[in-house]
Nucleic acid binder design. Structure first.
Lengths: 186, 186
DNA sequence: CGCATCTGTTCGTCAAACCGAACAGACGGA
DNA sequence: TCCGTCTGTTCGGTTTGACGAACAGATGCG
């Protein structure tokens, strides 16, 4: 779990260009939003220069991406898991099934679950590993979810993220509720 | 939005001190291992100064921690993005809106999108960055998606993953189709 | 004590990051 | 065509981050 020994001089250049293209704005516009000189940005995208943290931070904010996305340096076949397929982890406490869709690898700690819940019971999770984060998107039904004291109600298409290392709970409010859960482990 | 507006000037200071204490080495020793002047490190731990990326990167390597641990503020708070909210990237070619929900962090380069599509048009993507991977879970409607020649049809709860660096397409087959897209960038 | 060696700090110098303006090229409208 | 406005680039001038040495304080050993 050591850090990457490659100084991201060139990585920053391509990352800036990639993220800027994603947002779809010009170099001039990005420089204006970030509050930096466009000459500076031009040189950064050209791969020359060693930006200060403040400069790169401002760019990250303007691009709407986390800072690390700009500095961390940068395989698969078609696989389908139909609803109801896949290895299931059934909760013994509540009417809930968690289906592991894609387990993370060493470098990419990422688990994608499909949650299926039925109303009437509450699924509580004490806490996961420190600094873990949960992302949830509801596909159908209604879901009351979140840390104790910060519960929110979600409908189809609603999204919520919250720390996974604090006690939290899931509770379906309508039949046929399902959601996508992306759990990050540090 | 997603990026933190607070410049991590002070965050870096406490992070450096914390990680250095964890390793159990002196300021002088850390400066030597990182190949930077100890005066520079002293000022950084004092909260003054705005280090360059190279400098901070060297410190991250010497400390054996990922770069982002030195700059990212501690934890994630509860954040809700209601359906229809969030910054949208609207396609000009088809009836599709992509909403950026959560950009990835240090080791985990992952963007979570909520895709909303209407039938009748086809959204084609040439290719993203090499080795990128897409994960899709359909929330409602029907979706025909995948690389050219390997298209699959998905209903609510269905899941598919495929390489993102090859030409692929999205096509809604029913009104009100939406899906969760998790895109990984290497 | 006297000296060595560590701790982290402060100071002067230099290279470089940053800025602003001036620049050439592309595109669109009158 | 001519003008206006966008694109991104390159060029001096100013600001500042990084360096190395000199510094005071703490600890240890003969």
């Amino acid at each position: 779990m050591s850090a990457d020994p490659t100084p991201p001089l060139a990585t920053i250049a391509v990352a800036l260009r990639r993220e800027r293209d994603r947002v779809g704005i010009s170099l001039t516009e990005l420089a204006r939003r970030a509050g930096i000189a466009k000459s500076t940005l031009s040189q950064l995208e050209s791969g020359v220069g060693n930006p200060s943290v403040e400069t790169l931070w401002a760019l990250g904010v303007a691009l709407g991406v986390p800072f690390s996305r700009l500095v961390e340096p940068p395989a698969a076949a078609v696989r389908v898991v139909r609803a109801g397929d896949g290895p299931r982890i059934r909760s013994e406490h509540a009417d809930l099934t968690a289906t592991l869709l894609a387990a993370g690898t060493a470098h990419i700690r990422r688990d994608v679950y499909l949650l299926e819940l039925e109303p009437g019971t509450v699924r509580t999770a004490e806490s996961h590993t420190p600094r873990s984060v949960e992302h949830i998107v509801v596909g159908a039904g209604r879901l009351r979810v979140g840390p104790e004291g910060d519960l929110v109600e979600l409908g189809p298409g609603d999204y919520v993220t919250f720390p996974g290392d604090a006690p939290h709970r899931y509770e379906a409010l309508a039949p046929g509720t399902f959601a996508v859960l992306v759990m990050e482990h540090p």
